[in-house]
Design a protein around this nucleic acid. Structure first.
Lengths: 205, 205, 205, 205
DNA sequence: TATGAATGAGATTTCATTCAT
DNA sequence: GATGAATGAAATCTCATTCAT
């Protein structure tokens, strides 16, 4: 049949992204079928192909979307007057705050790289690299200025990102620890881990 | 046809575990078919069912196998005379050493929990809990003895495990950093992160 | 959206016939989708249904169109003063000339009969029969007048039509042989094949 | 489920070829679905893929099979003592006899070339070329020896093959004309068409 | 112990067609 | 006259699994 009265392309497009994000995060790209997504959206499977030419394309859209928004969000957050320690703390707070409210995006971004075909993989890897570079630059600057005592900026970057992103594997909103408490704890652990002596100053959560 | 001359049940059983581990780690449980495994082993798909009653059972075998061996290995490693700091350092060295040589097992253990059906999930979760308890106990002991200054043993446990396990996402053998160098760097970062002042003593890699 | 400024029903109608003819001739009715046709025309698939109620109807239009024009064209060609041999030669020249410039129509007319549903099939078969009857009548007349020595008018008709229509399977314009040369060669072969002794007189190509 | 007691690969393989040949000849490659073939064979659609990796492969098998058998059959038929006229008559008789009993193969061979993807197309074209070369050689020999008066061996080849293959479009076994009568009529028409004066000697049907 | 044939369900994707706008 | 959104059916192909041999 045809279009239902009141149906609307933009609404459907958003619903597809939302539902597929949720499903893929829960079960994994390979385990989610186009039919499952369609059912969640409330359309037939064929309708999905008006918005994404293949299942793979849908995954790429999801991941690119997330990475681009993440990078933009940091740009709005950054404060050029920060010392390295302040900037690292700000980054920790930002990363946790941003990720804790978007567990599905994060999970997909980290877990479904292997499901990407070469073209999509290259695109997403580039965006990931840009985000890693932000943290690496902070650490390098702190090392140059003698504020941090870290042996290797790259290893530090990877270790800290793993630690931060790991929050999502155990954090439950409404759990024993508030988000701001977690942010403070992680900031402290991480500043210590790079050998920073400067006291951790409170930052907006 | 019947059994090929020279074919051997034990050999096949091992080959199935080895190849399925490799394939599932690379592509994910849902993306690996029984036929792919069979081809890698060099048998027909039907033959796999002589060893594992379902695809799901095969996954459970793989994961239980890994967790049990990991726990056993730590038992052989532990030294009851260690101070908390020494034990934490030992744990860091152990975890990195053990995991760096078994990237596939680790990846599956962390990634395919969601692919487990309820029965298998309960079993594997129990074993994971036992491993986490080891680290949590170390931290708690260090806190009690005043050697560590950590606000929350559980959060510390999860943060440290995430950091450690993250090594596998970027470590390449033969890369710029040797395994023992990485172990030292992580031990330092982690001891600092729990507020330990005791100098890091060298441990066997 | 509504009609685009400058779009025009007649133009679209012609474009649909032209593009569908081309596509169906190349790939076959079953292998051509309405979307492929729409894309070639430069409209959305839905727009095709303003001109043809179904895909099948579109095919019937294409075939009826061709057969009717072919029959009309012969009517303009015929010369009632021709002897049977002259008329046969005229027919050969006509058929080759007409078909060589319309390879797509011919191909569809001969190949897609099987794609017609009963109603359309009856219609097109009737028109085909009329065309075959023209040739059969020529041969019969030649036999009655003793100019041809052919054992069976029907077999002769079918054999000659197959031979003539086969030209399209190998003729390439600009190839080694000119159209008029081919017409002469075929006229000679065909007149001989029906045992006609009268010399082949030149006819307009 | 599993294999049915008494089922047998060779039997199924033959049935697939037989049924797909029949169906593709009637409706065309694009219009025949794997399900239709499977139903005709009496298996599920998936079972077809044990024998042919794709639908396209199945088509190639069908066409190669036919062309190879056709070429072999002529090799058994040929008589090196034939004069060109005798050989041409023999070829006509052979072609009609062979094709009249295999209408499906012929139809597919001539009609589904366009359904072949490049790889398969190249293969089948090569075999077709070999068959055409047989007739072309006969005509060329007749021209050299002065027995035939034909202006162009290539055009003659294509014209005669079209004529001969066209028999299949109208012949119905048990119809008004017997096969041997048709063979004689065509041999006569064709020998005349190449300007051969030698009387047509009877050949085995 | 393993093969080879098959199933039945389900995967992604495409199709002709419809209809509110 | 045409679009854009959608349907429901069907296409090709893959999958886990079974079982006679």
């Amino acid at each position: 049949m045809a279009r239902l009265a009141g149906s609307d392309g933009k609404t459907t497009a958003l619903a597809i992204l939302k539902q597929s994000r949720k499903l893929i995060a829960r079960h994994g790209y390979a385990a989610v079928s186009m039919r499952m997504i369609a059912e969640a959206v409330g359309v037939q499977a064929g309708a999905l192909y008006q918005y994404h030419s293949t299942k793979q394309q849908l995954l790429v859209s999801l991941m690119r979307d997330h990475m681009e928004k993440l990078l933009e969000a940091w740009q709005k957050e950054v404060n050029i007057q920060d010392s390295p320690a302040q900037e690292l703390a700000r980054f920790v707070h930002f990363h946790i705050r941003y990720n804790i409210t978007r567990p599905d995006e994060i999970f997909i971004a980290y877990m479904e790289l292997r499901a990407l075909e070469p073209e999509g993989f290259k695109l997403i890897e580039k965006l990931r690299g840009e985000y890693e570079a932000i943290l690496k630059t902070i650490i390098s600057r702190g090392m140059k200025q003698g504020q941090f005592d870290c042996e290797d900026a790259h290893v530090g970057t990877m270790a800290i990102l793993a630690m931060l992103t790991g929050v999502n594997t155990w954090y439950r909103s409404g759990g024993r620890l508030s988000q701001s408490k977690i942010q403070d704890m992680y900031a402290k652990m991480i500043l210590r881990s790079v050998g920073c002596k400067e006291p951790n100053r409170r930052l907006p959560t």
